[in-house]
Structures are given as structure tokens and as C-alpha cells.
């Protein structure tokens, strides 16, 4: 499987996650979101970029519980709660945001 962005095809797995993490760019993220009928706003990008930084530092996508806590610490309690994160990413902040961030599915996510 793959996703075409600006004339280039990016390989994805059967669930739409990017096969090669180093190929990611924001346009790929936006294109993946479009396929889910989701228009990415500043608030979405805040979480996506946070996930990419977390992955860069720890080499894993955090579990939702860990993500929520860490977002709260970095961006404040009004954003560090599941209600806010699920409103942004109704398919689950772990699964959905990680996909747009070009990361693998969070460890332990089924």
C-alpha cells in the first residue's frame, strides 16, 4: 500500500502507517488526515509535533496515559486531558496522531 503526495508515493502498511519513518514530512501527515476526512489545525499539529519529539528522544510512541500526562506538563492542564485529545483525534490520540506523525502505532496499542 502507499499514499501519493506531490507526485511521490510513500509506502504504508495495511493500516495506513508510514513504512519508513524517515520519509515523513508535514504534507504526508496532512494527506493522511485528509483520507480520514480530518483537516489538521494548529492544535492537531501541536500534538503531532509533540509525538515526533517524544519519539526522537525515547524511540517509542508513548501510551495514551503517558501522552496525556506529558502534554499536560508541556502545554497545560486544559490540553493534558483525554477529552481534549479525543476531540482532536476521535480515533484515539495514540493511533491517529501517531499515524499523521509518521510514527509506528504506540507499543501495546491494538
Amino acid at each position: 500500500m502507499g499514499i501519493e503526495v506531490n507526485g511521490k508515493t510513500y509506502e504504508t502498511d495495511e493500516e495506513g502507517y508510514l513504512a519508513n519513518l524517515s520519509e515523513w514530512n508535514p504534507e504526508v501527515g496532512s494527506a493522511m488526515a485528509k483520507l480520514d476526512n480530518c483537516d489538521l489545525t494548529e492544535s492537531h499539529w501541536e500534538v503531532i509535533n509533540f509525538l515526533r519529539e517524544y519519539y526522537e528522544e525515547y524511540q517509542i510512541a508513548p501510551a495514551v496515559r503517558v501522552l496525556t500526562k506529558a502534554i499536560g506538563k508541556k502545554l497545560g492542564p486544559d490540553k493534558g486531558n483525554s477529552k481534549y485529545l479525543y476531540e482532536l483525534f476521535p480515533y484515539g490520540p495514540g493511533k491517529q496522531a501517531c499515524k499523521y506523525a509518521g510514527l509506528p502505532k504506540p507499543t501495546g496499542c491494538v
Partner: peptide, 14 residues
Amino acid sequence: IKNFSPTYNALGDY
């Protein structure tokens, strides 16, 4: 291959 030693630093978060 993946260097997973940075992941040990995440254990505190968990």
C-alpha cells in the same frame, strides 16, 4: 538497527 537504549529513559513516565 534501532538503538533502544533511550527508551529506558521513558520508564519513569510509565
